[in-house]
Computed example of a mutant assay.
Amino acid sequence: MRILVVEDDAVLRSVMTKSLHEAGHRVDAVQRLAEAEQLWQYQPFDAVLLDLNLPDGNALDGLRRARARGDRTPVLVLTARNRTDERIAGLDAGADDYLGKPFDLAEVEARLRALVRRSQGGANVVELGRLRFDGVASRIFLGEEAFDLPAREYEVLWELAHPPGRVVSKRALSDKLSGLEDSLGDNALEAFVSRLRRKLAGTGATIRTLRGLGYLLERNESEP
């Protein structure tokens, strides 16, 4: 998943970013509302972790603006404020879930997975050919064995699989998998897809290129 973390506490922001990175996610982390809104408006995210008290404004105002323009990215609000009326205000502004500080990082990750599953239709498992994409474990399996891939190849395949059969443009895929510190260019993306095609041989799944449109993960009908 690609996650936007909006948190003004430098230590907490660093800890959350490290934890999410180690769990296999791509993370953009900012401390100000203006930075968050600029990224959120022009970059695709799977989920947003949003602290309410920011140096340059109330994060709920930014959340309301995002919802007003039709953005439905799942949002988990993180805040030290844990009064009932403030939780209600956050949910009314468009938050999908609310977690008071202090919190357990494992619970943050679990709630994020649940929010993203819900936004994608609630499916915990996607199956294609002999591949199984487990949304709870964030793992890919080939039969009963783990289908382990380098991080970037994993990210490309996971994105194409949610859901499979969806055409994803090169630009959309590159934007989704690029972060503040690095960018995934067309040449690199084509190299990852080429390597994935070779590794998918025998899995019953394949990646098809639709010229001018992008990539499509689908059942390989030539394999049993």
Rank of each mutant, 00 (worst) to 15 (best):
R166I: 03
E145C: 05
E159H: 12
L173T: 13
G143D: 04
V167I: 14
A172M: 10
A146Y: 10
E159N: 08
L157M: 07
Y154C: 04
V168H: 14
R171H: 14
S174A: 15
A146P: 13
F141K: 12
L149H: 12
S169Q: 12
G143Q: 03
F147Y: 10
W158L: 00
W158C: 01
E144K: 14
R152E: 10
A151I: 05
A161T: 01
E155S: 11
R171E: 14
G165S: 08
A172Q: 14
E159G: 02
S169D: 14
A146M: 05
V156D: 05
A161Q: 03
A161K: 01
V156Y: 10
V167G: 11
G143P: 07
F147N: 06
V156S: 05
F141C: 02
E155L: 11
H162N: 08
A151Y: 07
R152C: 00
F147L: 01
R152H: 06
E155D: 15
L173N: 13
E155P: 00
S174T: 10
H162K: 02
R166E: 09
H162S: 08
V168N: 13
R152Q: 12
E159V: 07
Y154K: 14
K170C: 11
R152M: 10
D148H: 09
L173I: 14
K170S: 15
I140M: 10
R166F: 04
V168S: 12
Y154I: 00
P150H: 00
L157D: 11
E145F: 02
E155W: 04
P164S: 03
F141H: 14
A172Y: 09
E155C: 00
P150Q: 03
A172S: 15
E153V: 02
H162E: 02
H162M: 02
P164L: 01
F147V: 01
R152P: 08
L142H: 12
L142A: 10
E144C: 03
F141V: 01
Y154T: 06
A161I: 00
V167P: 15
E153G: 07
F147I: 00
G165K: 06
E153C: 04
P163S: 01
L157G: 12
I140G: 05
V168T: 15
V167E: 10
D148P: 00
A161N: 02
G165D: 05
S174F: 11
A146N: 07
E145I: 04
P164D: 05
E159L: 04
V167Y: 07
A146W: 01
V167N: 09
G143W: 08
F147E: 02
E144F: 06
V156A: 09
I140C: 08
A172G: 14
D148F: 02
A161S: 11
R152A: 12
W158R: 03
G165L: 05
L173Q: 13
E159M: 03
A161D: 05
E145V: 03
A146C: 04
L149Q: 09
R152F: 01
E155A: 13
V156R: 04
L157E: 10
P164I: 01
F147H: 04
K170Y: 15
A151P: 06
R152Y: 03
G165N: 06
D148E: 11
L157P: 10
F141R: 14
L160R: 04
L149N: 09
A161V: 01
H162L: 01
L142F: 13
K170E: 15
E159A: 05
P163I: 02
E145P: 00
V168A: 12
E153L: 06
R166G: 05
D148Q: 06
L157Y: 11
K170N: 13
W158P: 01
L142G: 11
E145A: 13
V168Q: 14
